[in-house]
Amino acid sequence: MTSASRAPFPAAKYIKEIGRGVNGARALPREDAQALFDAMLAGRVSDLELGAVLLAYRIKGEAPHELAGMLDAAHDHCAPLAAPADKPVVVIPSYNGARKQPNLVPLLAMLLARDGVPTLVHGIREFPGRVTSMALFEALGVPLCATAQSAETQLGAASNPLAALPIDVLSPALSQLLDKRAIIGLRNSAHTVVKMLQPVGGHSPAEALRLYSYTHPEYRETLTEYFSHEPANVMLARGTEGEVVADARRSSRIDWLHDGHQRTMVDPVGGSVADVPELPQGTDIAETAAWIRKVLDGAEPVPAPVATQVAAIKECLAQATRVTWASPL
């Protein structure tokens, strides 16, 4: 890295735009949002200015075009991760963990990989008070990738192509920005952007199908609008405690957004599913891992909503070969 690229980045003119409060703040042009976020990831923004930027965006919120610029910058700070030659990768972000219900992200990923679908799960190792997917993968005997190259090897495996990649390996810069939560007590823009990553190959829609979840129904409309105006190959669904895996207790809508189009792959069903499996009580790692092993071995049934989600993902992958990917609208 050159000395020029490490030079302090003057952020005041950007803070002046985004820091005027809820009613007075203005969104930055996409190019400026990209430049600012790149400087933040490169450690070129002073602590005082960085705190101001993080809080300003927390109050204002990111406009869709600002998120697009931030995502461009984030991709530049990810370790290179070559795409498998013949199959797109399913990319699963996992950053919330489980508070009350068992974390079934590893089950979803392992079901896909068992069927030969290259599956990349990226996320945090630890989250105080919650059970992360990375902790569960270790309990299940799935080694965490220590390098991007080891993730490439796992994704290209002839059988069980599964890679569990901690964010501090994929992008130390993003990981450091996520860690600011412990200092200021609030999430920041990095928590949104990291879930939008398509870290495989050249970051194109043809190389990976991203899973993305929302918590509040109104946010689905915002995300739909965003992904309709950006190159996308995304499955959007209401998640479970912020994770992308389907809720084992009820079926919800799953949409596929690609090339400016939207298709509902799974229609929502009111109420609980007819036959809810006996899930582990709470979030205990050992109990959840043991239950997941039973499901994978056939001793327990796959929860119907998760099985439906797996089928929808595989259908999208099958149809993706007939999609012509376009530039942004």
Rank of each mutant, 00 (worst) to 15 (best):
I292Y: 03
G270K: 10
G61H: 04
P88D: 03
E315C: 10
E138I: 08
C316H: 04
P102T: 14
L236F: 08
I59L: 12
S46K: 05
G129T: 13
E243I: 10
R114W: 01
A148F: 01
D115W: 00
A151K: 05
I254W: 06
P64K: 10
A7C: 12
L236H: 02
E315G: 04
A248H: 06
L279D: 06
G202N: 14
R293H: 13
T132F: 02
S46W: 01
F9G: 10
H75T: 08
A311R: 14
T264L: 03
T153D: 04
H261N: 14
A63H: 14
I124H: 03
H261Q: 15
L186I: 13
K100C: 01
M70Y: 00
P10D: 12
A311T: 15
V121R: 05
A35W: 00
A35K: 10
H191S: 14
H203E: 05
E287Q: 15
D267R: 14
D86A: 14
A79Y: 00
L55N: 08
L317P: 07
A12R: 15
A135T: 15
R20M: 13
G282V: 12
L50K: 08
P231E: 04
L162I: 15
A237K: 03
S3P: 10
A232L: 07
L178M: 15
L71P: 04
L155P: 07
Q198A: 13
L81E: 00
A307H: 01
E230M: 11
K60A: 12
E243R: 07
D32R: 12
L296R: 08
P172G: 04
A246L: 07
L296S: 07
